[in-house]
Design a protein around this nucleic acid. Structure first.
Lengths: 342, 342
DNA sequence: TTGAAAGCGTTACCAT
DNA sequence: ATGGTAACGCTTTCAA
């Protein structure tokens, strides 16, 4: 930026009035301050003429409101988060908020830095799909008065709004679906950021298996930022467990890696290996055979998250109530879990 | 935000020194100003103790530098842009820049508002995949001294850095590939934001067809924000032109819609209809048959775009040179354009 | 009905 | 070697 921008002072000087008056008019306080219609018109005209637009930094500094919302997710290039980001962005802009976003890559340190950035930048609130290990920092932020809405993953005993999907139930349904379709040797390939026994998706799978007197077979992976690295892992799992009939995947990219692994092993879906994935995806809809998925209600998640935050921003801190919204997933049965009749 | 944040004043008062001194120390001017090591240490310690972090709004207001980069693309939920966004984000953060992003949806008005936002927010520079019709506004911005790097689409006679892919050549190669494989009735399904005769991807296709004495058959669509709406259009095209042997798609989402259309018409790829897509995508790699694509060098695009911008931000305005980088695409031949031998 | 001035948290000039 | 103070552009209180 180089050329001098026109400031409120320029408007004022140009019209030989004080910047206070200009500010009042611009902030819709003309009536309240009983400023003459004539002057109002004159000012508005001049504002147009000089193309004046208030400096948001100065405004933010003065008012403590930046109209910026921080959005923190695991990976903005993952279609699940990208779609949610898009929906949130859209709604935010309609309400005159901008989005500043960041991908944590499930890296604790990165996440903490981003939280710090949110505060030093003075964002009005944030929407966070948290990674593990930043519970303390988020709590600090909440106590400092930051408006936060969590989604996708939650912490125990955290007093803020959360939009969640019922992961346990979703996984239970997915697993049971396979069982109902006649599969018995069903494995789970999932991410475990936390301990497996605390991961709802893993628990849901285990419950379904046990409930039907089958033996759970959980393969839990740590997060890798190079998603392609899972392919070999999955290949090995399939090769080592040759009685596996079906696999449930805990995330969309694990399922995609799974598809690659299965293809490269020359196995056929669903006859050699049946599949259910978590999160829908263009790919799963169009793949042949199409892939059975547990779909998350993306629009609803985004909608509720941003609505909740916007509402929070307009509410006095004192009379806030923190909601935990639990949304249901939808099982979409497709070809990848349908035994061929013969 | 509610609780009082600790400011530079708090540090100063707490140590009974002036905030000037603190500021000098914090900005690495201790040596230059010959401030005693002892004091430096004391200040740094206190900064740690009180967890002081400078208010970036105030810094920005004072210095005119916000360390924010604006990123404007067509649609952040499109994997092509999402991947680029991720790469840019990563590199930006490593250089202490934050990203503020927005999706134009190819809407002129939206795009202009975002540009406005960039300036009122005082971003240091921006990376833009421009939509049509904002040429004037971008030029104004450039003249006002804004640092801009364009990618994906360019304007004639615009003096700023541009990172482009050779769309014409890419499409030419794609079309010729189909011709070499023995297809003759090849249609193009493309987006035309500008006039078709100005769209490089369309031109490349036409040139290849004409060069081989074949008749071009261009179906150009306006942008639709609901990408699913293309499916029916494409179905109709296929139904009405039943001698079509192959289709080239100008964007990844057109190709995805094309796959849906083809599937729902019960046609087989490549025997009933061969396909080449622009932009690679997980889906195209994994689809059966896998889809031949013209791949853009996403990493390189992102890398050059952000590098160029960062370099620009460190260069005096006077001795800047504007580069137009032209990158090549890569044809990745796969099953969707391979006639079965029989 | 309008304006002067203080103040938001910084940085940077000019003193000392 | 360190500090006082103006200035960045805005909003808001108080005064007139």
């Amino acid at each position: 930026m180089a050329k001098a921008r026109v400031s409120i002072n320029d408007i004022a000087k140009n019209l030989n009035i004080s910047k206070t008056t200009v500010s009042f008019i611009l902030n819709g306080k003309a009536k309240e301050k009983r400023i003459s219609d004539k002057l109002v018109k004159k000012v508005l005209l001049k504002v147009q003429e000089l193309e004046y637009h208030p400096n948001q930094l100065a405004q933010g500094l003065r008012t403590g409101k930046t109209n910026i919302i921080g959005l923190m997710v695991e990976d903005i290039s993952n279609p699940f988060y990208a779609s949610i980001a898009k929906l949130i962005e859209d709604k935010a802009y309609n309400n005159n908020y901008k989005i500043i976003y960041c991908s944590t890559e499930n890296n604790k340190t990165r996440a903490k830095e981003f939280l710090r950035m949110f505060t030093t930048l003075g964002v009005d609130g944030c929407i966070i799909a948290p990674t593990m290990g930043i519970e303390k920092e988020i709590n600090t932020l909440i106590n400092a008065g930051m408006n936060i809405v969590l989604f996708d993953r939650k912490f125990e005993n955290m007093s803020t709004d959360v939009v969640m999907v019922n992961n346990r139930e979703g996984m239970y349904t997915a697993t049971e679906h396979l069982i109902n379709r006649g599969y018995k040797n069903i494995g789970l390939i999932a991410l475990a950021l936390d301990k497996p026994e605390k991961e709802d998706r893993i628990i849901g799978y285990q419950e379904a298996m046990k409930h039907h007197h089958l033996t759970p077979l959980v393969f839990a992976f740590p997060f890798k930022s190079n998603l392609h690295d899972y392919v070999d892992d999955i290949k090995q799992i399939i090769e080592k467990n040759n009685d596996l009939e079906a696999l449930v995947f805990g995330t969309n990219y694990l399922a995609i890696s799974g598809l690659e692994a299965i293809t490269s092993l020359n196995l056929k879906i669903p006859d050699d290996m049946a599949i259910v994935a978590f999160d829908d995806h263009d790919l799963f809809r169009i793949h042949k055979p199409d892939i059975t998925v547990v779909a998350q209600p993306i629009e609803t998640i985004a909608q509720i998250a941003i609505d909740t935050l916007l509402r929070k921003l307009q509410t006095k801190e004192s009379d806030r109530v923190n909601d935990t919204i639990n949304l249901s997933t939808t099982l979409i049965p497709r070809g990848s879990s349908q035994k061929s009749k013969r």
